[in-house]
Nucleic acid binder design. Sequence first.
DNA 1: AAATGACGGTTCATTATATGAACCGGTGAA
DNA 2: TTCACCGGTTCATATAATGAACCGTCATTT
Lengths: 269, 269
Amino acid sequence: MTSAVKTLELLTFFSAARPEIGLSQFRRLTGRDKATTYRHLQALEDTGFVEQNPETRRYRLGPAVLQLAQLRERTVPRKTSVEIPLRALAEATGETAHVSVLSGSNLHRLHSVESHQHSTRVVIDLQILPLHATASGICALAFGPEDLMETALRNLEQFTDHTLTTAESLITATRRARDTGFGVADRSLEEEVYSLSAPIFDQSGLLAGAVSVASVATRITARLERVIQENLIAASRQITLNWGGATPEDLETRWAETLSTSPQMESAT
Amino acid sequence: MTSAVKTLELLTFFSAARPEIGLSQFRRLTGRDKATTYRHLQALEDTGFVEQNPETRRYRLGPAVLQLAQLRERTVPRKTSVEIPLRALAEATGETAHVSVLSGSNLHRLHSVESHQHSTRVVIDLQILPLHATASGICALAFGPEDLMETALRNLEQFTDHTLTTAESLITATRRARDTGFGVADRSLEEEVYSLSAPIFDQSGLLAGAVSVASVATRITARLERVIQENLIAASRQITLNWGGATPEDLETRWAETLSTSPQMESAT
DNA sequence: AAATGACGGTTCATTATATGAACCGGTGAA
DNA sequence: TTCACCGGTTCATATAATGAACCGTCATTT
């Protein structure tokens, strides 16, 4: 491991619960020598990545990170930052992957990537996704602002004979999403489409959107569903990270539970 | 110089004008060997500080900086606390207002706000402000730690033909700032920019940074300068307060003297 | 189609830099 | 007083950083 990586690793020990860290504490956390750790901290201080609280002599994050973050925000739009994980998701599942963002009470399509593995595949051609009839929408209702449900209930347009058109069925589906960590839409928008979705969070700590896989319904098996779930988790984690957010602990727990109770099977990446 | 510092320095080459940088371009910018630079970039990529645009193969800032900035903001919400007075300052003067913070012997840009009053305005795109060529820098030298002058004198790079490049002229400018309570930089960094600056203090009682107004030089009149000075004082007082500091009595006295000896005129807020 | 040059990336002997055991001086507790 | 722990420093040693030369690829030029 390079010393630069070792140096940068120090920064990962900061958290909301541990915003200031002293030299000895760093030494314990890293298991590295005190002198080494001290020099690493010096390098970080020289470059403004950490600064020393003059009162406690402990180190905290410095101003340099603010400027870099500002620049990253300005130069890497959300659509671009979604490209890589979305492509990976489409590859791994062999289906169409897409990301939508919540803006007000509308869920807008941000980007989608189709896999070339099968000749039949789902094409997303909506710009605004109905909350009650898509996996992304169910996710938004489950993990987004509470008043979103009111908006959703105001429009329960029937698209297929599987569309959830009653308040009761929609609330049940939403509750299931909250429990499992995944939104599901089984042929509720289009006759042949089965979708799974996971929520995305940004720096505000609130739901920012959802990442979904839309499959051809007849292709779905327990095995494929499992693969999609595993890869949705990875994609959601990465996009949340890219958008400056953090995956809630509770959600991680739900995912773990959902995967452990589904048919046992080795992971596919 | 440690390899960690060399690695971290790569990040300073990113800017709004240069959001993506390729390996060869980095090599030219740093003057270091290509293999070295490549390994540095690998370290940054491993830790998420940069990522590679898969299309262009060039590097851009990565998601890690967002995480850290979020934490820094929550821990040390200086940037947030500066937003309101800075916006007021920009409105009142019709010019670009910015705040920089002193970390070690570097003056980092923390935040800037541009006024939309004029179509021509100053855009701050430096991350680290040179001590000898900016109003903020002169302020830091005048009101900051004494050993800062040594650092400043070690690098008197000439940016324009107005840049203070002699120890004598820099010391004179610093003394004038101490006397008047304002740092001045008259076309010393950019040909068209005239800057005025006031110091900011924090809970330690020491200089924490500076708040400045950067004007288009040809727009400066005695009247505008007066308006800027008055509003700089208000901004400095408020930010110092927000950061848990107190404006030194002596400084208040200097400001009062400076305003009373400048052409009489009613205040503009 | 051969030559050119710029690009990102890799190799390996050499050398410079990172490392850690031991050491300081200061502080607070027993 | 002693003791433990803190942040910070020193210096011989060992390890990791370095850069000249290399590779393959891709456009552009001749």
